[in-house]
């Protein structure tokens, strides 16, 4: 019986550790309060996007692996936004430009865009506001 009680105490401590992120600030690894999608979200969201530009100025969509070097949209979005917030928009643009292989794309443009996300999903016009944060040529050595 004594071992059973010790096992119960150890398990209670294990559960307390797992639940601790719910009562202390911050989030971590591997203990977390799993706050993703827990907070309400506005229907208007700002995204950082990158696309290629042809010689005629036509915008060409880029694959996620070209833009962010990953196929995970969450990682890609976080990285793009983080680079712009940290003031590394030009470096971000040059990193994307280095991955461009399509010959018709001569420039990369990085933009901060605010979208009505519901309209975006429904196929309607969604762009509310846009600002170019960086433009850089393709095929030029980064400074």
């Amino acid at each position: 019986m004594r071992r059973e009680r010790w096992r119960l105490i150890a398990t209670a401590a294990f559960v307390a550790i797992l639940l601790s992120p719910a009562i202390r600030p911050g989030d971590g690894v591997p203990l977390s309060s799993y706050p993703m999608y827990a907070s309400p979200r506005s229907g208007e969201v700002e995204f950082v996007v990158a696309h290629g530009l042809t010689a005629s100025g036509e915008a060409v969509p880029l694959r996620i692996t070209v833009v962010a070097g990953t196929s995970d949209p969450l990682i890609a979005e976080t990285w793009l936004r983080g680079e712009v917030i940290a003031g590394r928009s030009v470096a971000l643009c040059q990193t994307v430009a280095e991955r461009i292989e399509a010959p018709e794309i001569i420039e990369v443009e990085v933009r901060s865009e605010r979208h009505d996300v519901v309209a975006q999903v429904q196929g309607r016009s969604s762009l509310l506001e846009a600002e170019t944060v960086a433009r850089c040529p393709v095929g030029v050595e980064p400074t």
């Binding site: 979200r41 969201v45 969509p61 996620i64 979005e77 996300v117 975006q120």
Partner: peptide, 24 residues
Amino acid sequence: AWFDPDTLRNHIAYSASRIDLVGG
């Protein structure tokens, strides 16, 4: 407010838009 339809709608729309705009 979690049970308000707009809450989940905005989460779904945000995730879908993110993928669409980032390229997926």
